[in-house]
């Protein structure tokens, strides 16, 4: 019984961590290339809406996913235009993108479906459903291993597994490939990249577009994986928690997984229990909700290991003169 609850919480943590993880890795590509992105939230929201809407219209989760990715990447291109081509302020651009997504999804959603900004309830075909991995039945009777396999390892939709696979993939791309080397270099010293004969602009656009791709998947997961349709403001700050996780993880892929699982766990606890009692002290649920942000501030303050962002982050590349 105890084990079952534990496993349910663990499974729930994993599902809640998935969108955080995808968005966190998205931010990782962008920020490692020197483009700060506080617009993760907006990109996720736009993707969640488009995925939900298109999946509802076409009845296909996969077409919805593609539409969500497209919406997110369009916003990425705006961010790229502002911060790479026009050398504008990356933070302001991110703020604008968040508002744009917030306003447009509600406006267009209401106009399109007339359901108060929601998209129609998705049928099975329009959603990414939980997969039952092979052997679940066979293993079920075995104590401990059976339930773990059933609740924690099996029983998630494909995007959850995709998000988990994205962690080692990101690590590999970043530290084992030419592209990753150049990406990390452009976030630290774009001048070195430029004088090495590599286009800073192209590299940064590539990073920003990958960020859009992953945010798109994260958004689609929200509306077609976790829920059965889009609801207004359904990201509810997840993009910012992902940003917090990115800082928490000091811009590294494996710690990003850890941070997202931790934040997902906090959310799972918050959903399951309205407050936790430890001895005579009651920890309110709001504290659990605020904890990711509090932890991030503590990390940022450098009291527990300093988080140093990529050196050239946030600044457009201008040849000195």
């Amino acid at each position: 019984m105890e084990l079952e609850i534990l496993l349910q919480i663990a499974g729930s943590s994993l599902r809640l961590a998935t969108p955080l993880l995808l968005a966190c890795l998205a931010g990782l590509y962008s920020e490692r290339a020197g483009i700060f992105d506080i617009g993760l939230e907006g990109k996720m929201l736009a993707a969640a809406f488009m995925a939900g809407a298109v999946a509802a219209v076409t009845g296909s989760a996969w077409v919805g996913l593609l539409a969500g990715i497209a919406a997110s990447m369009v916003l990425s291109l705006i961010h790229g235009l502002a911060s790479i081509t026009l050398k504008g302020n990356q933070l302001i651009s991110g703020v604008a993108i968040n508002f744009l997504a917030s306003g447009l999804t509600a406006l267009v959603g209401q106009n399109w479906f007339h359901q108060g900004g929601q998209t129609p309830q998705l049928t099975a075909g329009g959603r990414f459903l939980a997969l039952e991995l092979p052997l679940t039945e066979t293993l079920a009777p075995i104590p401990v291993i059976g339930p773990i396999y059933q609740h924690l390892i099996s029983g998630h939709n494909i995007l959850v597994y995709l998000a988990l696979a994205a962690v080692p993939a990101t690590w590999w791309v970043l530290f084992r490939t030419r592209f990753g080397l150049r990406l990390r270099a452009v976030g630290e010293n774009p001048g070195a990249v430029d004088t090495a004969g590599i286009s800073v602009v192209r590299l940064r656009y590539a990073a920003v577009l990958i960020c859009g791709l992953l945010c798109g998947i994260a958004g689609a997961y929200l509306s077609t994986g976790m829920a059965a349709g889009f609801v207004r403001e359904m990201t509810a700050g997840k993009g910012f928690i992902a940003l917090a996780a990115l800082i928490f993880a000091k811009w590294r892929p494996w710690p990003a997984l850890g941070a997202c699982l931790l934040f997902g766990f906090l959310e799972a606890i918050g959903i399951r229990y309205q407050g936790i009692t430890i001895g005579s002290i009651v920890i309110p649920v709001q504290f659990m909700q605020a904890l990711p942000y509090i932890l991030t501030v503590v990390i940022l303050a450098g009291f527990v290991g300093k988080a140093v962002p990529p050196k050239a982050g946030g600044r457009p590349y201008v040849k000195e003169r």
Partner: peptide, 10 residues
């Protein structure tokens, strides 16, 4: 090697 790599893998 930055910019003078031999191939896509490091």
């Amino acid at each position: 090697i930055l910019g003078a790599e031999n191939g896509p893998l490091l």
